[in-house]
Structures are given as C-alpha cells and as structure tokens.
Nucleic acid binder design. Sequence first.
DNA 1: GCGCTGACGCGAT
DNA 2: CATCGCGCCAGCG
Length: 117
Amino acid sequence: MIPMSAEQRRADDARRILEVVRALAPGEVLGYGAVARRAGFPRGARLAARTLAANADPDLPWHRVLRADGRIAFPKGSAMFREQCRRLKAEGVDVREGRVRIAATPGPYALDRALWG
DNA sequence: GCGCTGACGCGAT
DNA sequence: CATCGCGCCAGCG
C-alpha cells in the first residue's frame, strides 16, 4: 500500500463523491447518504454534504442531492434554498414546500432506486 | 486531546 | 405528519 497523506485522501474522497453527483441525470434526485454509499462510503452522508459545500465547480448538479426524507437541506427561505428549488423545478422536478415527493418522482429514478438498487 | 458544529440518517414518540 | 434523540464522521478552535 502506498501511504497517502491526509490531504491526498480527502481530495480522493471528494473526487469519488463528486463523480457520483456528476453522474446524476436531470430530474434524478438522490439523498446525501445514498450518494455516499454509491461512492463507497456506507456512513458518509456528512462527507457528501461537506464535499458539496466545498465544491466550486459551477457545472456540478449539486441541486439533485437532497436529504433522505426528500427535503432540501438548506434553511427554508435562504438564498441557497431558493436556488435549489429553482434549479429542480427548472428540470421538471415537483417541489412542494421545499420537499420532493420521492415516491412520485417520475422517471426510472427514485431516491436511490429504493435506496439500494 | 476535547468539545462544538454541520448542505446527514433513522428509529422512536 | 412533526419532533426528538442519538449515532456518525470530519474539520476547526
């Protein structure tokens, strides 16, 4: 095993998380924990959140990541909250009261296709 | 090392 | 449903 500095490890973890987020198709939403699982971090919900918070890539579809219960993670009414709402609606996602009805989400997607698919 | 904090999750109430 | 509590993981003072 080649030793990796803590800094390199963080960068690598972030890269893996971002890779999963970038793979999300328009209208496909996923929870932070689900994103982390796909990236190989069984209990990395917070890692996913941190990674998105630090991200600067303007092309990253960060708005497709929600909390496990389908609600937007930002405080209701905040600038980020409104921005995420706007972006989701812009791609046809049904957002009501800052939350997405996962079960009713159209397309072949669901919240991580029932969390494990 | 210690405690607090957060774009979290989940079961219990 | 809405809340609470507690677990979890990193980062930071």
